[in-house]
Design a protein around this nucleic acid. Structure first.
Lengths: 194, 194
DNA sequence: CCTTTATTGGTACGGTCGTCCCAATAAGTG
DNA sequence: CACTTATTGGGACGACCGTACCAATAAAGG
C-alpha cells in the first residue's frame, strides 16, 4: 500500500519522507536506501516497503518534499522583503539562493553539487520527469515574480536565457581547482541585471 | 601492482582500460564494475585488481582513455576539413560534436547525458579532478584552434562564455518533455557566431 | 465486545558489490 | 637448465542492497 489510513500511519509515512529528503540533501539520490531511510526515521526496515510500493516512489516523494520546501522558503523570502533592501544586489542574491541554494553563500559546494546532480540525474529516472518539469515551472514563476517585484519586467525567453547562463556558469565552475560557482553565477547575473 | 611488466600483461591491461571506457560510454561511472569490466574484456575477475590497485584507478584510466580518443577524433576532424566546408554552419556542427558528442546529431540523448553526468559527477571523485581539468584545458585549446581555423579570433574569456552558454542550454534542455539539447545549443552558438 | 483491517517489526532470500587469497602456470633471467 | 618473478584464473569473504514474508499487535468499526 502506498497510503496510510490512520493518523499514526500518516505520521510515520511523513517521517519517512522527511528522512528521505534529508538523505537526499546530504548524499544525493543514491543515499536514499530502504535501510538508511528507516534508520534515520527510527522506524523498522519494512515500514519503507509498507508505505511505498518501491524505492522510486519514496525517492519521488522525497524530491517533491524537498523542492516544495525550497519554493516555500523562496516565497517567504520574497514576502519578507523590506523597502530598505530594494537594490539589485539583494535581488541577485535572492535569485542565487533559489538557483544554487542558501548554503552556497559561504562557499559551500555540496548543496550546489546536489542540485545539479539532481538535474542531470533526472533523465535516468523517468518517473521523476513530470515532477521535475512541474517544479521547474514553479521555480520560473517565482523568479519572474521576484524580478517583477524589483521592477524588472522580463519575458519568459529572457528568463530562460538567464537561467541557462547561471547553470552553464555553475557546471563549468565545478571542475575548477578552487570552485566558487556562486561567484561565477553572480558575475553573470550582474552583467545582465546589475 | 598497477603496471604490467610483460608484453602480454600490457595488452591485457590495455584491454581492461578499453572495456572500462566502453562501459563508461554506455552507462556512466556506475557501469564500471570489476565484474563487468572483466567480462567485457573476456578476462578473469581478479585481473582487474591485479592491474589496478582500486576501482578508482581503473575509472581514471577509462576516463583518460575515452577523453583522449575524443580529442584525437576532434583533431582529425579539424585536419580533414576541406575548403568547401568553410562556412559557419559546419564550424558550429564541429563544435557541437566536440561538446555534445557526435551521437547527438540524430537526436540521441544518451551520449549527451553521459557527458554531463561525467562533468557533474567529477567533484564526487576527487582523484579525477586534476585529470578533468587537464582534459578540459585541452578541449578549450582545440576549440580555439577550430575557431581560429575558421577565421574567428576569440579570446579565452569569450570562449569560456560560449561554453558556459552551451552547457547551460544543455542541462536545461535535459528536463524538457521532448529534449533536444543539440538544437538548443546550436541556436545559442548561431546567435553568437552565426 | 468482537471482528476486520491497518500496522508493526523481526527476519530471510537472492543478488551484486569490492576486495582478497592462493594454487597453478607462464615468462624472464642468470 | 634452474630459479625468480609475473601472471592467471578460480573461488571465497563480508558487506550492502531491494524486496518479500509473516506472526504479533494496535486501531477502527459494527
Amino acid at each position: 500500500m502506498t497510503a496510510a489510513s490512520t493518523p499514526k500511519g500518516e505520521r510515520r509515512r511523513q517521517a519517512l519522507v522527511e528522512a528521505a529528503a534529508q538523505l537526499l540533501a546530504e548524499g544525493g539520490f543514491e543515499a536514499i536506501r530502504h535501510r538508511a531511510v528507516a534508520e534515520r526515521a527510527a522506524l523498522p526496515l519494512a515500514s519503507t516497503t509498507y508505505y511505498f510500493n518501491s524505492l522510486d516512489e519514496l525517492i519521488s516523494a522525497a524530491v517533491e518534499h524537498a523542492a516544495q520546501a525550497e519554493l516555500e522558503a523562496g516565497r517567504r523570502r520574497l514576502a519578507e522583503l523590506t523597502e530598505e533592501h530594494h537594490n539589485a544586489d539583494s535581488m541577485i542574491e535572492l535569485m542565487l539562493d533559489l538557483l544554487l541554494g542558501t548554503r552556497s553563500r559561504d562557499g559551500g559546494l555540496d548543496q550546489v553539487l546536489l542540485r545539479y546532480e539532481r538535474l542531470v540525474g533526472s533523465p535516468r529516472r523517468p518517473y521523476l520527469a513530470p515532477l521535475m518539469r512541474e517544479l521547474s515551472a514553479r521555480l520560473h514563476d517565482l523568479l519572474t515574480e521576484i524580478l517583477a517585484h524589483f521592477g524588472v519586467d522580463i519575458g519568459r525567453q529572457h528568463l530562460l536565457e538567464l537561467i541557462m547562463l547561471v547553470d552553464g556558469a555553475v557546471v563549468n565552475a565545478l571542475i575548477e581547482s578552487d570552485p566558487d560557482p556562486r561567484a561565477t553565477a553572480r558575475r553573470v547575473l550582474h552583467s545582465r541585471l546589475g
